[in-house]
Amino acid sequence: MNPGSQRLRTNTGQQQVHQALQESGAVEFATPEEAIRTDLARTMVPPTVRERLAESLAAESAKPVSWWRRLFS
């Protein structure tokens, strides 16, 4: 078999698979990192984190300065 025609057929096969994937809504990732980055982009951080953090930081700022900090400041 002609190696050139075999490679051409393989490439055509890959293109068909790729096209079929696109049409079906399927996805493919070249590397695990690519899949992870996509997953990260799709992951929503719960807004409660920010709210809780704001409350905690407000409490943190309101904390009285300890006697030894006052002594050495």
Binding site: L21, A26, V27, E28, F29, A30, T38, D39, R42
Partner: peptide
């Protein structure tokens, strides 16, 4: 080989 999946919605669970 590329990592293939049928539905992007499954990505989080698969990862």
């Amino acid at each position: 080989n590329p990592l293939r999946m049928l539905e992007i919605s499954e990505l989080g669970e698969r990862i």
